[in-house]
Amino acid sequence: MKKNLLGVVVLAIILSLCLSSTVFAAEALKVGLVFDIGGKGDKSFNDSASRGLAWAAADFTIKRIELEPGVMADREVNLRTLAGIGYDLIIGVGFLFTDAIVTVADEFPDTKFAIVDGFIPDKPNVVSLLFPEPHGSFLVGIIAGMKAQEDGKDTIGFIGGMDIPLIHGFEAGYIAGVGYVYPECKILSAYAGDTPMAFADPVKGKELALSQYDNGAWVIYHASGLTGAGVFEAAKERKRYVIGVDSNQNFMGFIEETGENFGLTSMLKQVDVAVYLAIKAAVEGTFKGGIEVYGLDRYVTIEGVTYSGVGYAIDKYNEDLVSAEMIAKVDEAKTKILSGEIVVPTEVTK
């Protein structure tokens, strides 16, 4: 027993004897992006961050890398390794990076860090990119409420990922938006779980969505990362509406065979806008640490299309579902939110 298992280690050591060296080209600003749970391909949060990096790569000369950490300790290792091999700007996607960035930012004071959704107010080399998600959720809530009213239905649903204050903000804004146009509407609400895996559990998402649809929900808004893929599945199965989150997920409600679409709209939390602007600031030398809020009033124009920090999605998939009336109402609410006439709640009152 002892001999053979030691053999495992011996083998490992033999393989390690040859040291490797990796050469990285210098000059261009080097930007590292480290993803959240769910990783690239979630058609949501992480993909949005990745798109922001791609936009920046098209507009500026940068060298980029994208990484998916596994366990928590790897976040710190990923950040430290990137900083160690000379990356200039390192972006952690998601609040789970908070502790790791706080630690590594002190070790590398000359490296710039950005954290999406995290709150690190007091480091000169860390910028925190925040979004007023309740505002965007309010807007899609208006669309959901008007759709249900139009079709003579009395219930809509909300499905969250992990049951945490961040997601409660989505729920609160959404409920307020529905209430703004259709106060009598009933609201069903559910969360996928208590652990971060609740953001990566499509099976659970489908289960919760089916139960809400079967209890009369006409539209469901999900704020649950990868879990939402299951909500879209359920929507297509029950032929009811669903609202996507973070990225434009309208296409996920499209049934190719019949040409029907059930993706009503998507709440856009343009992580891409924030990532793009953070990289732009670093390239232009205007990077500064602290808090940056990307709301309805922060814009980026890429290839003729303007994106704001938060908003809602209209494209070829849902242009027939969202009426001009709804858009007028949403635009009205937008102005009122920006002027402070409407104060969107961030906590659910039950």
Partner: peptide
Amino acid sequence: LGVVLAAILFGILNYGGAIVNIYTAGRIPR
């Protein structure tokens, strides 16, 4: 003893995997 050695092997794979992921610029996924 086997558990200790196996845990160390898993530790090597986990940490080494994270580093490979970086050095191959994400082309070798975790």
